[in-house]
């Protein structure tokens, strides 16, 4: 007979297993019960406080103070709920209503709390702060965001740069442009989107960035230039079509699709004939330009370029024409 284990040990094993399973079951049920209770509590608070927040969003100038006083008179849990509701609503709206809600966030104590937590030990909290600063834009938010944009945690830096998109002051624009650099540790799409969000205020800065030494900055600026229709950036974009870095060339070509520049045609033609991803991007830029500029280039592409590039240039397949 194969026995091997003393029966008492087996019993212990089994009992332990059942105990563990029971504890897990209890944890499962408790977790859900607690969550449901919290949800119910929030729903209750919401029913009472939501009308107040909504009323504030349409308040006339002379009604604001009274509303803010009402918020200040609420207890801690209620004010916290007001802060939460305001944050959620601010994601959807701008203008006067947003200004009113921001005042409410201030009165609820949310904005002061956010500012106070800007130097919290936990990077997750600091990232949340950066996010909230962009949304609530309280006094001093810009200075704090510039500080958080140099945070030790890459996560915090990224959120701060994204939040800076809501501020078009020169210091903010400069910081966002610097974040385009290759070794900034910030995703280029985040920095470039922030720059784009800063809008027409950045035109001059983008033009200069097209000549920057850092390829990341050139790439980001090249990508944004076309979307912003940054006037006077055409020559620089045409030059960047032949940049030493592939990603810069691609970005310039994407912008040229929206902002045609005649001087770029020869470089685009050469790139298209070289083929590959770059060649396809070049072909797409070419067909977005007026036909009288590009007729020769397209004819040559039709005769010599690889099929992928011909497709990008909208040229028919040989079999179809034959």
């Amino acid at each position: 007979m194969t026995t091997l284990l003393p029966p008492t040990l087996l019993q212990w094993l089994l009992v332990t297993a059942l105990l563990v399973a029971t504890v897990m079951l209890v944890a499962l049920v408790t977790q859900r019960a607690v969550r449901h209770r919290r949800e119910r509590r929030r729903a209750e608070l919401d029913e009472r406080l939501r009308p107040l927040v909504l009323e504030a969003s349409i308040a006339e100038d002379d009604e604001v103070d009274a509303l803010l006083a009402r918020v200040r008179a609420l207890d801690g849990e209620e004010r916290e709920h007001v802060g939460r509701t305001v944050s959620s609503m601010l994601r959807g709206i701008t203008g006067e209503a947003a200004d009113r809600l921001r005042a409410l966030a201030d009165a609820s104590g949310l904005a002061p709390r956010v500012i106070a937590a800007a130097r919290h030990r936990d990077p997750v909290v600091r990232a949340d702060v950066a996010e909230a600063l962009g949304l609530l834009a309280p006094e001093g938010a810009l200075a704090l965001l510039l500080e958080l944009a140099d945070d030790a945690s890459a996560d915090v830096r990224t959120v701060a740069i994204r939040a800076l998109g809501a501020f078009d002051e020169p210091a903010s624009v400069d910081r966002v442009v610097a974040a385009l650099a290759v070794d900034s540790g910030i995703p280029t799409s985040v920095a470039a989107s922030a720059l784009l969000q800063q809008g027409s205020a950045v035109g001059d800065r983008v033009r200069r960035a097209l000549e920057d030494d850092d390829p990341g900055v050139r790439r980001g600026a090249a990508r944004v230039a076309g979307l912003l229709q940054a006037s006077g950036s055409g020559d620089a974009l045409a030059r960047l079509v032949a940049d030493e870095h592939e990603s810069v060339r691609l970005a310039a070509m994407r912008s040229l699709e929206r902002m045609p520049v005649r001087d770029a045609v020869p470089a685009l033609r050469a790139a298209a004939l070289d083929g590959g991803t770059i060649g396809e991007a070049a072909a797409r830029a070419l067909i977005a330009m007026p036909g009288r500029w590009t007729a020769d280039a397209l004819a040559q592409i039709g005769a010599e370029a690889e099929p992928g590039v011909r497709r990008a240039a909208g040229l028919p397949r040989a079999a179809a024409s034959a």
Partner: peptide, 8 residues
């Protein structure tokens, strides 16, 4: 376009 101004 969102985010929008309710007034607008």
């Amino acid at each position: 376009t969102k985010p929008f101004s309710p007034r607008a």
